[in-house]
Design a protein around this nucleic acid. Structure first.
Lengths: 356, 356
DNA sequence: GTGAAAGCGCTAACAA
DNA sequence: TTGTTAGCGCTTTCAC
């Protein structure tokens, strides 16, 4: 198999005779031979914090540069049992509308010397497959911003792979989580709606299986009640633009009474809802109908929308997620932890005084 | 270092005595021992197309299942010289607005048994780093949907790493490319504009370094001339929403004369342009001003925009990109190839008869 | 500070 | 068909 001329213990006579085969990448042995030092010396030069003399380092580095040598991360991973790979699980469908998260996480991983192995998960079966793949590739950890069942999580746990959940967690199971809690902001917005005279609201939620959706819906319900606004109807969407539009239709057709405000548990649906209100129902948003979203995605602030919404601090959350992963890669016994971030209200222009 | 009880040639007496250390993952040796077969038999069971008896396979698979054994892809990569990793290079900034591409490519890679190692590239320095990282991780190939200099490409070429460019290429250098050529669609749209009575147009381009932008701009210029529409001003944006808005301001303020149509070389700028026209300049799009985009991103068809644009067949392009990579991983001597796809006009509603 | 040697978990040539 | 064996390229004791 080996078209590799190197022998483990190169015979002295051959060692200089056989040239580097063109196209084969240089190994630490090649560098060692050229520099006239041992292979382990080369290895040490590329491991920060190793004890090595300046002279040696210089010689080795010169040879390394000449051969364009870069240590083989795969081989290193094999011996160190550290792949420096982190599986990032996102929902392809959802992340289409929230790509900020993925890119921030990737950048933070990169800054921490880790690489993102990207997996899209859009079903339970996908998740099963992805978990096996991640396991095969010896990922050091998993950052999950997609759905994962308790059973699937149990598999990772048993295999001692650190997992950080991004904006989702199992309430009845210890796990490591970075999470945005918009409680205060929900209260703030709802209070404002109440002050603006709103008394009837409807809500468009996400899939009932989705934790973020459930949690946001719960907060909204509580806040509405507390502020004397009646929730006259709740319809279920799937986080997409289309489902926001459809949700509004459903509310108008089948709802009992007309809400003056609609709260959507994410921005994408809020935008769908707003467009439907304006272009199909010919309502003036916000004069006839106020709309509120969640997330604070970039496009929610385009002039066509200027959505009033609750932003998540994506940057700080991603940073935390990566830090939590690295901590748990270093010390697998690290206990679970939940880092909770506050949201922030983006005032926007999609709410106004209730029509009289 | 090894807390691994396995000896390369396990002494018979020890072999059954030492239990699997809790938490250590099972290796093919563990499976072999449990099944009472050789380690290579285990290996063969997990390599499709190996000659192995049904009885053997059954025995091995039973043991494997019991130990939850999955072959170590890192170790496999080391010996086969195939990592099954493909570096996917995207521009973080740009892909924020065009995530479809990334997800399609990832899915196609996955279907081909390859994993996506995600890299975001937003500067030349990023690209240098990314190329070194990809090299260290022994990626089998690179799909680049981000900027890459000729020098950087040369490095990959020299290292014999197959590269497929997505929507960009070096005209004066052989390379493997999947590309969307919107020539006909540009002509179609421009002709339509001409038929609608437009005689003055302006254009908002992307960065001059960007090939896609240059190419689209060139096509637009040619088509306009051919159809008797004068290009009265061209301003440069950076593909973002904001730059589209700013571009329109610049055209209105500094342009010589007022265009009745604005062509933007991507949808995001077209949307920024449209919003600026409507909300700041209080123009009616399309009655007062027609706007055309490029790409066909999902949100360009939201009711607020309904942009007339030229769509790229992302799905088929991604599929081709992955196929081209796999072909070149199998046969590195494969010659370069350029697969060109046609665009498709999405009629939209952002163009109308020129105001009189 | 440096080199020799073992071995991470796997595949594949070779022998039986 | 099966087992034996030699590495893939690296890190890490262990002597010196």
């Amino acid at each position: 198999m080996a078209n590799n001329p190197r022998k483990k213990n190169p015979p002295e006579d051959e060692s200089k005779v056989i040239p580097l085969i063109k196209g084969r990448r240089a190994t630490s042995y090649d560098v060692a031979r050229l520099a006239g030092v041992s292979q382990s010396a080369v290895s040490r030069c590329f491991k920060p914090g190793s004890s090595i003399s300046g002279k040696m380092r210089e010689r080795v580095m010169k040879a390394a540069k000449e051969l364009e040598y870069q240590p083989n991360a795969i081989a290193r991973g094999l011996i160190t049992q550290r792949s420096n790979l982190v599986a990032v699980l996102v929902s392809g469908r959802l992340n289409l509308y929230y790509p900020e998260v993925l890119f921030k996480i990737t950048e933070e991983l990169s800054a921490a010397g880790l690489r993102a192995l990207l997996f899209t998960v859009d079903s339970e079966d996908d998740a099963d497959m992805v978990i096996e793949q991640a396991w095969q590739f010896q990922v050091d950890g998993v950052i999950s911003a997609s759905h994962m069942s308790k059973e699937q999580y149990a598999v990772l746990e048993k295999r001692q792979i650190p997992v950080v959940f991004f904006n989702r967690y199992f309430a009845d199971h210890p796990n490591t989580v970075v999470y945005c809690d918009p409680s205060e902001q929900v209260e703030e917005v709802v209070k404002q709606l109440s002050d603006l005279g709103h008394r009837n609201a409807s809500m468009i939620t996400g899939p009932s299986a989705n934790m973020v959706s459930r949690e946001r819906a719960r907060l909204v319900e509580t806040s509405l009640k507390r502020n004397g606004i009646e929730l006259i109807s709740t319809v279920q969407g799937d986080f997409t633009y289309e489902s926001g539009a459809a949700g509004l239709q459903e509310i108008q057709l089948h709802g009992s009474g007309a809400p003056t405000v609609i709260i959507c548990v994410n921005d994408m649906m809020a935008m769908g809802c707003m467009d439907e209100a304006r272009s199909v129902l010919e309502l003036d948003v916000p004069k006839d109908l106020s709309i509120v979203g969640f997330d604070g995605i970039g496009m929610s602030q385009f002039s066509s929308y200027e959505l009033t919404t609750i932003r998540q601090p994506i940057g700080r959350m991603s940073e935390s997620a990566v830090r939590m992963i690295t901590e748990r890669v270093e010390r697998p016994d690290q206990s679970h932890e939940k880092r909770v971030f506050e949201g922030a209200v983006i005032p926007g222009g999609s709410i106004a005084r209730a029509p009289t």
